[in-house]
Every structure is written in C-alpha cells, then in structure tokens.
Nucleic acid binder design. Structure first.
Lengths: 238, 238
DNA sequence: GAGTGGTCTAGACCACATT
DNA sequence: ATGTGGTCTAGACCACTCA
C-alpha cells in the first residue's frame, strides 16, 4: 500500500532470490528512485527497513552492500508470536491449551503494575510441542478490560492473529526479560525435563498502541532447546 | 553535530528529567519544528530515535505519548559492550585479563566462517567480576588481519573504546545467539559455580562497517546472575 | 572530478482523532 | 472543522570513496 513498503518488499525478495547476491551493491539511491519512479527520500525509507532487518549495510560514498543472509539466517527477535516463529521455519509444532479461564489477577502482578487487586484477567496456560516433545510452557494473563474472552481454538492456533484481526487490537511494543529460574512442580509435571534443575524464562509485558498494558506472559523453556537469535546494530553514542 | 541528533538528545533529557512526564503528550511536530527552528522532517527523525529507544509512542491524529521509563527501565540489548553496560548502571565491576595472545584460529571457527585454517587471531580470555564475584567468562577472537594486537590494559578497561577510538574501526552490526550449555572444566575453574551444571552462553559475530567479520565472542554467564532485557516493537507484516 | 550516501528544507496531500 | 501524525516530492548542499 505504501510506496516505500512495497519497494522494501520487492527489494527484500530480490535479495532473497539472489538477484542481488550477497556482497554486491544495490543500484544507487538515485537509480532506484528512477527505476521505481519515486523520489529519493522514498527509496531511503525502503533502504532503512532493509538496513534494520539486516539485509544490507550502507556505506557513505560507496553504496548499499547486500549482506549474506545464509550466514545471518533466522534472526528471531523482537515481538513475534510462536505461530509466526514456526511459520518462518518449517517445523512441525503443536499447541495444547491446558487452561483458559477468568480469574482475579495474581497479587505479585497487581503490585508490579499498580493495578487494582480485584482486576479480572484471562489466564491461559499452554504447552508448546515441537517434534512431539513438550519444550515450552506458556503462562499468559490478558487484562479483561481489553479482551473479554479468548476462544480456546484461537489460543491453540494463534492468539495474536485473533487479537489483531478479530479484536482489532493494535499491539505496539513490549518489554522482554530473559532469566534462568529453578524449575517448579508445574514445569516438572508438564515438560519432559529429565534431570534439569532450571528453565529459561522469558517474561514479557505487552502494550497496545494507546500505551495500555494488556498482556503479561511467562514463557518457560527447556534449557537444552532454548535458542534466541538477534541481529543487532551498534548505536554510536546516543 | 546533526540537528536531528541534537534534538533527540535534548528531548530525551527533558523526558528523563520529567519536564515531559510519562503519559503526557510532546508538543506537536509542527510546534517542535518552530521551537527548534528546523523543518518538520528533521523533527520526525529525532522522534523516530525516541520511538526506537522506547521513550515515546506515536499515535496518528493524536500525538507523541511519553512512555514510563521507570517501568521500562534498563532495556539492555543490542550491541553494547560490558563497559557501557556498567556505566549505564552504577555497579562496581572489575575485569581480569587471563589471556592475551596470538594463535591460529580454532578449527570450528575456520569452518563456520569459511576462513583459512592458518588465519591468525588474537585470543582474549577475560573474567568479569561484579561485587567481587566472577559472573562472566568472556572468550574473544579478533581477526589479526584487522587488529594486530590489543594492549592488555585496553582489554581490561574497554576493548570497544580502544578499537573505535585508537584503531578507528567502525563496528556496525552483529549476530547474537543465546543458548544454554553444560559447563566446561574452564568454567568450573574460573567461576564460582556452586552446584550449577549449565551456563548461559551468548555467542556474537561482530562485523565492521565494510561488512568484514572481525570478532567472534563467547560470553559465558553464571545462570543465576544472567539477565537480558529488551525493548521490542511489533513489526506489522514485513 | 564524478558518483555515492547523509542531512535538511518547504511544501503538499492524506488518514485519523477530537471537538 | 481543526489539529495531529504519515507519506511523498523536488531540490539543495555536504561528506565520503574511488578512479
């Protein structure tokens, strides 16, 4: 729909299909502007998206160098749902909804977020299986002021699809925290933990476009199957 | 030096000092343009930096909402050195250089990066102490084609300061991978591991502006002291 | 010197939220 | 209807790289 977004997608695809191979230079901004019949600033917006997602590296005076996506493959970071992760890779996965009920918010969360102690939340507990093994235990709390209820089959397929498309919620940003914690009885009960004593826990606070908190999640991962990949750029002196 | 960067730093500071308190709106882009005597596009570049670093949330038709930095404090992610992390928080820390020598590249790295097997590297091993305890074991390999040698006191204080300022190297981006691995004899020997069986390992491939690989690092963290915080934005349909 | 990306401008029109 | 941010333009000048 937006010009710069279309150009981004087009260039991205051409890079992925090796039409612009790794190590080569993209056409200059001026050339691209002529090729797509847009202004240079519009090209620059598209290139910025490519830069941020790790497809190119720019050099003043030289040009835009295409990076090696083979090498930098699967950078999986940011605010991405389990479903989207699986779609990106071809992995056979399965979600089992253990719990989907309304309750009052746990006290430690009410305190942490300065929310009334009688706040109602939807409490979801889900198991994530990959190749038949239970790898992840997800515990979600959704504020009931914002979502009244979630159909269990939506929780099974993709919660974010449902919230964004059916409920028209605009998920905007999140604070994520990665820590390692000793296992609980619940972990031991639901996951195939062998002799593990710890799990990796990813705690996320998710906010809407209007800055309202609407979700808190603890995603508990089996140690030996946890992997998080990130593409990072150096920010020179903010 | 750049106008938009100066404006970013100014607005950032005013937000941190609660001149623009959390939940309030910044002046409109048109107003800001007049206040700083610049064009609106320049203001928009500054606001984009604020948006990306989690200081504001924009809403079309409404304005730029200041976010609660108390709540979203210490988002520590991206490509940041140990020194910079410590500077951001007031923690007493110490670095001990265990090794600083030239050797041929380990075979698994030569294969992984398609580098000649006789490539020379600088091999650094460093311990990171926080409050007197050894928390992190850092193993660095720097390609000798790019840096000939590193003074041990530079490795002790800040490697990145030295590389960027003394050596004029432009560090641009990295691929980072977070996994959990069983401990090695080396881990056991140097860190106070108690009964831990695993460590968190952050593996980083660091690249220069001209896209040359120049550093590979394994940062091995004690489980109970590992914490990684990230501010993430939802990317709607790339 | 020619070509590249980086910054900045002044203006236009659109989409959205509020009154 | 007004004001907000989102997109796009055409042009200017600067900083940098490379032949």
């Amino acid at each position: 729909m937006n010009k710069f977004h279309e150009i981004f997608r087009d260039l991205k695809q051409r890079i992925e299909q090796r039409e612009y191979p790794a190590g080569s230079l993209l056409p200059s901004e001026l050339n691209l502007a002529q090729m797509y019949s847009v202004s240079r600033e519009t090209i620059r917006k598209a290139l910025r998206l490519l830069l941020e997602s790790g497809y190119i590296q720019k050099q003043q005076g030289k040009g835009s160098i295409v990076l090696d996506i083979q090498r930098l493959q699967f950078p999986v970071s940011g605010l991405t749902s389990f479903k989207e992760l699986q779609d990106g890779q071809q992995i056979n996965s399965e979600t089992i909804v253990l719990q989907n009920k309304v309750e009052t918010i746990p006290r430690y969360l009410a305190e942490r977020f300065h929310i009334p102690e009688d706040q109602q939340v939807i409490s979801l507990v889900r198991l994530r299986k990959i190749s038949g093994e239970v790898i992840i235990l997800d515990k979600d709390y959704l504020l009931r002021d914002i979502v009244e209820s979630v159909p269990t089959d939506a929780a099974e397929i993709s919660l974010y699809d449902y919230l964004e498309q059916e409920r028209q919620l605009n998920i905007a940003y999140a604070k994520k925290e990665f820590v390692v914690e000793p296992i609980t009885e619940e972990d031991k009960h639901y996951m195939n933990l062998k002799n593990d004593t710890h799990v990796v826990v990813v705690k996320s606070e998710v906010y809407l476009e209007d800055t309202r908190l609407f979700q808190y999640t603890e995603s508990r991962h089996r140690l030996d199957r946890f992997k998080f990949v990130e593409f990072a750029r150096r920010k020179h002196s903010l």
